[in-house]
Design a protein around this nucleic acid. Structure first.
Lengths: 207, 207, 207, 207
DNA sequence: TATGAATGAGACTTCATTCAT
DNA sequence: CATGAATGAAGTCTCATTCAT
């Protein structure tokens, strides 16, 4: 099915070819994020990674496995990126602004809630837990930043960090909304970022 | 798959029975909401509605059709319920509290964003538009309530009604979050409702 | 499924409505001839006859029945037409010319051979025989005309009437051939008719 | 439906075996010729080729594809056979006799006209053209032989080669006719061959 | 390491037919 | 006379998975 051809013999080392395993995972991640679990076929993944279906199975025992590893790796990467920003020595407001902007500019949006509904019945309990763990780690990063900000009196003491972390992520989704004509709520990303953060910051401040 | 048996031909009249068409639609709605488009098979819908696959096709030309009509009808129903509450002569805060509580207690949560990713490629343009239209109508209801509240000076003049409407719905999603152990953020629904509304109300109030 | 509406009540007698049964048969004949047995669905027949599927079944016990009656009636009609011409008091050559021309101008061509291959397994033995009988009657008409022509010394004595009758029908098929671009062998029907008859007449004349 | 069992995965190599692809094509050809397009199910083809339905789809993307390739390959084979005989250095009459006899003895008869009516709506334009092209190639072979015979003065100059080629094939069909009792027109094949050729030869000779 | 060949299970869909009204 | 509602059986096609090479 795949018509892609490789030249014969062992590939030269300086081809700086990514290991096949990683190539496959990246192809899978992108497809799963854009189309959802069921819509993506192993053939599609294989074709996008320029290998054959059997090769995908050589590295990943099942589609559910491939999905799980894709999601976990992706969330891990996002978490690292968030962490990098959050660990800077700047006011929380500044750091969140950067994260918010980055998220709204990315083409790929995470919305695990919707994802899992479709996927749940195809995964084992362990696989579901792996993914949810990775998701919670993402939330935890933000939660910790909130807690630190509380200690630095950047935000009120009485707020609930976990709730606020989720609130923040939920507000990000608003920035990704498009109506039937594919138009966002505000025409510029910057406007959107400002509105979201202002709303979020106000929301925290309940005297 | 269907174990329920009926004999061939037109069934004897029975006034107590809901029309088959509606029975099927309800079965479909519930399944689609819980499992997503791809995970639900027509056989499952049929079996849940106590009819055969062929009967489903007698009323709905395709799975995509059935899905579209399910979603549109469902969102229409939700919109009506929201409208009923919103049209009461009470402070907005009181009315939103009721809606929030109702939503968090319902077992079914709408999250069209995630839904459509999975489904997009299976639907025609017209079908997608139908669904998105119904979704926008839901948001509009809230938007209008916001606008009315602005005129009554219940909330500040400078806020953006559409943005706020989306914000509100996004916050509702937080109330539906469950972690890997299926635990919500707060143990009681009432607590959750209060927190969401307080955050929302604060968020509006940016002096 | 059929959206066609009739006005209420018993139709007026002077509507000169063809009896429903015949309307259905005509719709069926035309569809079967153009698309073959399997390609035509009862729904299509019903829709073309402006009745519902159930009405078709009210008059014809099965699709195979409907097909059989369609074919038999059609061949009977063709036979009558051929007979009318053949019974005239003119040279055989003149009479055949008329039949040939009529056949080549008709949009519908009979080719029972091909038809029956597709249909055989769907019909009962009796139904197949009915159709083949009707077909043979058609051939017989021509055969008899040949025999009469022999007695009138219009054509040689030693020829085999049945063989010649089949030969004649086979040559008619040549006139219906269209190549990949839908072009016939000769550009005008008259040219085709002349060539076929000249070939046929020569063919008979084996001294 | 298929009762023949094989285990999953790639089968052990076995040089004696015809390639699966060809086995399937042959099974398909025979079934299509005898029963027509619609009557043949992929399951039947698979079962006749001792593979599963999925294997058929591994090699042929759709039923229409399988049909197209079957017909094209079959006509190509017939054309080659005809060519082999036609290219011999013998009088045309002798060569046609051999072809005629071979055709009447074969169990499989080509009658594309009837075939295509039933099939047209299931094939793409390209597929129909492929088949018609293969058919025309068959006719061309004969046409060319006719033209050569004209140059060698074996048959009159004034005849129209394409028309005559079609005439010849049409006459072959007469030899395949069977009445309601499955009896041919003449009891022996040799008699039939003689009659057809005599008629054909006479037909050509119109002074 | 990588893959071509094959399969089993299941999905969507169509359609002839039946039956109470 | 005519039909709306329902079904059973079958058909095409997809896809995750397996296995010998």
């Amino acid at each position: 099915m795949a018509s892609y051809k490789k030249s014969l013999g062992r590939p030269r080392a300086n081809d700086l070819k990514k290991p096949t395993e990683q190539t496959i995972l990246e192809a899978a991640t992108s497809l799963f994020l854009n189309q959802g679990y069921q819509e993506v076929s192993i053939d599609e993944v294989a074709s996008k990674a320029h290998v054959t279906k059997a090769t995908v199975y050589y590295y990943y025992a099942s589609k559910a496995d491939l999905f799980t590893e894709s999601m976990v790796q992706m969330m891990y990467r996002i978490q690292k990126q968030i962490d990098t920003v959050l660990n800077r020595d700047e006011p929380l407001q500044v750091r969140l602004k950067e994260i918010t902007k980055a998220h709204l500019q990315a083409t790929v949006h995470i919305d695990m809630n919707g994802f899992m509904r479709e996927t749940r019945s195809a995964l084992t309990k362990e696989q579901i837990q792996s993914i949810q763990q990775a998701e919670e780690n993402m939330y935890s990063s933000i939660e910790i930043a909130i807690q630190n900000a509380i200690q630095k009196n950047e935000i009120p003491h009485h707020i609930h960090p976990k709730f606020v972390a989720h609130t923040y992520i939920a507000l990000l989704q608003v920035g990704n909304y498009r109506n039937a004509n594919n138009e966002p709520i505000f025409s510029s990303v910057d406007k959107m970022v400002d509105q979201i953060l202002q709303f979020f910051w106000n929301g925290l401040d309940h005297k």
